[in-house]
Computed example of a mutant assay.
Amino acid sequence: MGAQQKVRQEANTTGGNPLRLDEDKAEQIIDALNTDLADAYVLYHQLHKHHWNVEGAEHLGIHEFLEEAYEDVERAADEIAERVQALGGVPHASMTALSDAATVEPEDEDVYDIRTSFENDIEMYGSIMESYREHIELADNLGDHATGEMLRQQLVELEEHVHVIDHYLEDDTLVSQS
């Protein structure tokens, strides 16, 4: 780092915020949101991997759905990071910090059939949705209703995506089975 550069705020610290939320309460919410941010990036990369690798007769529809899904997750991650900053925190940004904070395990580097990939996605979505519900309750209990509302809106999108994936996993199809 050059002599001209200064750190404005160290990672893992909480400063004041213009939202008039007590710093101790904000710190608890920031910790929860940084977990959500880390989990979002794990999900983002897994969905992107599946988008790249999907094959078969239903390739195009699934490819397009996965692109929409990972773009929605990326948009949600951006909202979370901006909320962390508004609360006086520092959003996790390095791969190391995100990896350390994540509570979900990514799929390995192997390429799987889309059914296995979707089953892995449903598992990850489920864990993330459970975490969101806990963090919504935390934010509401600490008087941060705006964060609770933001997470509620994101939870609706997560649930919509997992619902679509669940439909893809049904046995009923117009594609002939060999």
Rank of each mutant, 00 (worst) to 15 (best):
A139Q: 05
S178Y: 11
H63A: 09
L138H: 01
L19C: 10
E10V: 11
A102V: 09
L151W: 00
H48T: 15
T116H: 10
P106L: 03
T35C: 04
R20L: 12
D113E: 14
E27K: 15
A102G: 05
R75L: 11
A3V: 15
H51M: 07
T147R: 01
H163G: 15
L158Q: 12
D144Y: 07
A26S: 11
G126H: 01
E71M: 06
L155P: 00
S99W: 11
Q5M: 15
Q154T: 14
Q153V: 15
Y70K: 04
H50T: 00
S178I: 12
L47V: 07
Q154E: 10
N120D: 09
H145Q: 14
L151N: 04
L37K: 06
V54P: 05
V175Q: 01
H59I: 11
H167Y: 07
V111T: 13
H92P: 02
V104W: 02
A3F: 12
V7F: 01
H167S: 13
Y44L: 08
N12P: 09
Q28Y: 03
Y132G: 08
T14D: 05
V111Q: 04
L138W: 04
R133S: 13
A77F: 00
H45M: 14
L174M: 07
S131T: 14
T103R: 14
L47Y: 12
A93Y: 13
H163N: 15
E58L: 10
E134D: 12
E23D: 15
L66Q: 02
T14G: 07
L155E: 03
P91Q: 02
K49M: 02
L155M: 02
D172H: 08
Q154Y: 00
N17V: 03
V42M: 08
A26V: 01
A38I: 10
D121G: 03
D171P: 05
Y132L: 09
V104I: 14
G16A: 15
H59G: 06
V90M: 05
E82C: 13
D144M: 06
D22Q: 10
H135T: 02
A38H: 03
N53G: 05
A76V: 13
V162A: 05
V42S: 07
N17L: 01
L158K: 08
E74F: 04
E134Q: 09
D166L: 04
I122R: 11
V73F: 03
I114A: 00
Y132R: 04
M1L: 09
Q154M: 01
E23Y: 04
P18M: 10
L155R: 11
N53R: 07
D31G: 14
H145W: 13
A77E: 01
P18D: 11
I62W: 03
H92D: 05
L174N: 04
R83D: 11
R83V: 01
Q177W: 04
M1E: 12
H50V: 05
H51W: 03
S127E: 15
G56E: 01
E160G: 09
H51Q: 00
H163L: 14
Y41I: 00
G15L: 13
A38K: 06
K6E: 13
G2A: 12
E123N: 14
L47N: 08
D113C: 03
